[in-house]
Design a protein around this nucleic acid. Structure first.
Length: 868
RNA sequence: GCCGGGAUGGCGGAAUUGGUAGACGCACGGGACUCAAAAUCCCGCGGUGGCAACACCAUGGGGGUUCGAUUCCCCCUCCCGGCACCA
């Protein structure tokens, strides 16, 4: 055996062995139970970063652990290869997105292989491959036939200088990131999927999932099911005349129908037909509506902007009192939500209250909360709480639920409204005015309208040689792509030049891994592997990706493609790996990011970042705080240096020992050296033992107290590490436990034959325990400890129950809850015995100081607390 | 603004079901080995007081429940993630 640990020689050799024996290829059927564990597929941004390393090492450790536990385990990998960054890179470097993406994939795949992850590469999926995206198109058409896909208009960010639609990410402080122009809202036709049809099921089936409670809660809140009342505020005569839309009035929805007598005005979105009508002949209002078009569509921006409004001069009638209620235009009312109109009850809604105060509108109290004071001067939290009606005519005295019921009944009697369920969830708009994505398989014919591309003509292939220039999709400028014939009438027609949201790609790739190269979207192999046993990915995907994938799975089920209700049985949400972010405003008002390695960073006395300057040129840049490692912010850290300097095992060990997988971490590589030193020490320990000749591991016989303690520790550690891997998925504590074991092993000086047998047992098992995290060094050490056998064939070590039996246990002794000493008691001691021993303790007597204990709390196996 | 999460020594973190706060590491200090260095090994390492034994304080801040709170409840501060076109 080599006396020194040389990972750079050892790791590639072992990786070649794995590749040669197809060590990680998983069969699609097996007598063993299956274990399907998948990491959210990476976007091929160029290089791996530490977030990826963390994600795939967790996945890999679980793969190895479950394989040792006797499962037919599978860990696949793929590439989320469509998306915006490829277009940005294309603009910056004048290279086609296809080439850029494929080069990145090739490089990142090499990095994955150098990390030694147990990936079954025969199942690799690239979402930009026509073999994959044709099924996006095929499935889209099936959903269209079923009515789950439909077309309507939607609002997007519009850059008036580049004349292009911007992603939310490309809007910085309301301006286009390249042009600095103030962004506007613009309505365009788009394709939608009726995810709201599945809202109830998506909500109800969350309960049975082995997901973190916080993620389930976020999804519940996102779906946002609420029961309320939808009703019409009838137009007054003048408004009815002006609108002439055949409707009786303005439709609104509320969850607070009990406050209906407090309505003092109504508000509509700037795009609402009533606003449009009111603006004719009202230049001030028209100007205000125009003003509301400025700014992007992001909810965070809309929710934090100043609430502004203007009266329309049009009126509706209160459904009960028939009082005239003025309709206002409000910049905070969104056309895309519900009806684009709301009733306003400033007395009991904080936003309405602020709006009414600002514009001098009346505020009326109609709810009393336990007699708490009500004044118009300042908003109080209890104004919004449930209470009893006052100033509400026949509803006075009713509690909230009764009042809502009575109001709904009266509205129904008048034919003005009814109770219904409302969701916060909106249908999924999948059209993108971009190039690098799945083409939408629809032909627009002047005569026949939107016509499906026939299945036989799929896939509609995306041309791969176009280079976007920032002014709209290049597909729109490529007649060879869009010029076609109508499949129905044969006349000249135009393809839809929009592509699909990349969340479509990531909604079902994990089923395609399981049906590698199938001639259909998925086949029976997907049924074998699905539902996935463990899904692992960043917490940032808690809502969108995970909700779309759940919806997609249910839609596939309803088309008979797969017989499961939910895709991901268990979920581990990894915390984000953060790093510092630096940027600079460009002359035009856009924004430009810099990687930390391009900068000289200045720290203040507390070690906080105080500023930074460019290494090249010395210009100072802005510090934007910390945030997730990402390509767009240019703050990712590539593991390559670490692999080259210390090896993949050190990189893997380091990220796993640093923190629990669910914790958010600020990146630092200060202590990588310590991880490398540990692996070197581990190597040296095994080498020291093997140099004296390997022996049979300890099985039975008389041993010293010290060796008994070592074996107790070993078997406790096996138990703990299995629990940490399998149940807790907390790898840092598993590593700490093995370190403790090896510290105790090192402290033993015994070189007798029986001690060497125990040493063999400890070292063999320690190698097995760490092998899921550091498989290369473990493979090498195992072959030294057990020549002729392969680590990958070994089962998880067995716990020797006999080694865990203890005669005596140590208990903590407290007086009034404060630690005062320790006592050793026989493991079989009863409560009275323990109590007596504790009271006899010298430190206890000192603190009890002659007083009679009021109470003695005994927690078996843990502590005694004497209360005086 | 709304939804979800987090805050523990100089640093990463541990304490799994309300039961010893600081496991295991990193950094640092001291020592051994060495001509020297590296590597390795040993010792120390939350704060205050004390020669020491030991005592008191301490888990972002404030309050509460409990024999006992890092853990449960209420209020607050700051940070992170998401908010539907980054993925």
């Amino acid at each position: 055996m080599e006396s020194q640990y040389h990972p750079r020689e050892l790791e590639p050799r072992i990786q070649r062995q794995w590749a040669a024996t197809k060590a990680f290829a998983a069969p699609d059927s097996s007598p063993k139970p299956k274990y399907y564990c998948v990491s959210m597929l990476p976007y091929p941004s160029g290089k791996l970063h530490m977030g990826h390393v963390r994600n795939y090492t967790i996945n890999d450790a679980l793969y190895h652990f479950m394989r040792m536990k006797g499962f037919n385990a599978l860990m696949p990998m793929g590439w989320d290869a469509f998306g915006l960054p490829a277009e940005n890179a294309a603009m910056a470097n004048k290279v086609a997105p296809a080439k850029w993406t494929r080069d990145n994939i090739a490089y990142m795949k090499k990095q994955c292989q150098a990390m030694g992850w147990a990936i079954d590469w025969s199942r690799e999926v690239s979402t930009c491959s026509p073999d994959y995206y044709r099924w996006n198109q095929w499935f889209f058409l099936r959903l269209w036939e079923k009515g789950v896909v439909y077309k309507k208009s939607g609002v997007v960010n519009w850059d008036p200088v580049d004349m292009t639609v911007l992603a939310n990410e490309q809007v910085v402080d309301g301006r286009g990131w390249r042009t600095g122009a103030v962004v506007e809202k613009r309505e365009i036709p788009m394709w939608y999927m009726r995810i709201t049809d599945y809202a109830d099921e998506l909500l109800d089936s969350l309960g049975g999932l082995g997901w973190p409670e916080q993620v389930k809660q976020m999804q519940r809140n996102w779906i946002g099911r609420s029961e309320g009342v939808e009703f019409t505020l009838p137009y007054d005569a003048e408004t009815a005349r002006r609108m002439a839309d055949g409707k009786k009035g303005l439709k609104v929805f509320t969850t607070r129908a009990d406050t209906i007598m407090g309505i003092t005005f109504a508000a509509v979105a700037p795009e609402h037909p009533l606003a449009t009508e009111a603006a004719t002949g009202n230049p001030a209002l028209a100007a205000f509506i125009e003003e509301c078009r400025k700014g992007g569509v992001q909810e965070a921006e809309i929710a934090t902007m100043e609430k502004k409004g203007m009266p329309t001069g049009l009126f509706v009638l209160h459904p009960f009192s028939a009082d005239k209620v003025e309709v206002w235009v409000g910049n905070y009312v969104l056309m895309g939500y519900g009806e684009g109109a709301v009733m306003a009850v400033p007395g009991h809604d904080e936003r309405d209250f602020a709006f009414a105060r600002k514009y001098g509108l009346p505020i009326r109290q109609v709810i009393d909360v336990d007699g708490q004071p009500y004044s118009l001067d300042a908003w109080q939290p209890w104004y919004e709480m449930p209470g009893r009606n006052v100033n509400s005519g026949s509803y006075d005295g009713l509690a909230q639920a009764a009042a809502i019921g009575a109001v709904a009944k009266d509205l129904e009697a008048k034919g003005l409204g009814t109770t219904r369920v409302q969701y916060r969830l909106r249908d999924w708009g999948i059209s993108r005015q971009r190039y690098w994505g799945t083409p939408i398989p629809v032909v627009q014919c002047a005569k026949c309208g939107d016509v499906a591309v026939p299945d036989a003509e799929l896939p509609v292939k995306l041309p791969e040689d176009l280079v976007p220039d920032g002014s709209g999709s290049p597909l729109k400028k490529t007649p060879s792509f869009y010029e076609t014939k109508c499949p129905k009438c044969g006349g000249a027609a135009k393809r839809d030049t929009d592509t699909m949201d990349t969340f479509v790609d990531s909604s079902w790739y994990y089923m395609r891994y399981a049906s590698a190269n199938a001639a259909t979207m998925v086949d029976e192999r997907a049924q074998y592997w699905m539902p996935m046993d463990q899904y692992i990915g960043g917490i940032e995907h808690a809502i969108l990706h995970l909700l779309y994938a759940r919806f997609w799975t249910k839609a596939m089920r309803d088309l008979g493609l797969i017989a499961i209700d939910e895709p991901f049985t268990n979920l581990l949400t990894q915390g984000m790996v953060l790093n510092h972010i630096f940027s600079r405003r460009t002359g035009k008002g856009g924004i430009e990011y810099f990687a930390p390695e391009e900068l000289d960073i200045v720290l203040d006395a507390e070690g906080k970042v105080a500023g930074a300057t460019l290494k090249a040129g010395g210009a100072s840049v802005d510090y934007d705080g910390i945030g997730t490692m990402s390509k767009s912010k240019r703050n990712g850290v590539d593991p390559q240096d670490m692999i080259e300097r210390y090896g993949a095992d050190t990189a893997r060990f380091y990220v796993m020992q640093a923190s629990p997988p669910t914790d958010t971490v600020l990146w630092s590589d200060e202590s990588v050296e310590g991880s490398f030193k540990f692996l070197r020490r581990f190597w040296t320990l095994v080498h020291g033992h093997v140099a004296g000749g390997i022996v049979a591991r300890y099985s039975a016989g008389e041993i010293t107290t010290a060796l008994t303690e070592l074996r107790f520790k070993l078997h406790k550690t096996i138990e703990k590490v299995a629990d940490d891997y399998g149940r807790r998925m907390q790898f840092n504590t598993a590593i700490a436990a093995v370190r403790e074991l090896l510290n105790l092993y090192t402290a033993a000086e015994d070189k007798s034959p029986v001690a060497r047998a125990v040493a063999q047992e400890v070292l063999e098992d320690a190698v097995l325990l760490l092998s899921p995290i550091v498989p290369h060094i473990a493979t090498a050490l195992w072959s030294e400890l057990r020549p002729g056998t392969d680590l990958l064939d070994q089962p998880w070590p067995a716990v020797d129950a006999a080694a865990l039996v203890q005669d005596q246990v140590e208990l903590v002794v407290q007086v009034n809850g404060k630690l005062r000493g320790h006592i050793r008691v026989p493991a079989s001691a009863n409560r009275e015995h323990i109590e007596a021993l504790a009271l006899k303790d010298e430190a206890v007597q000192r603190f009890v100081n002659g007083q009679t204990p009021k109470k003695v709390v005994v927690v078996p196996g843990r502590l005694v607390n004497v209360v005086v």
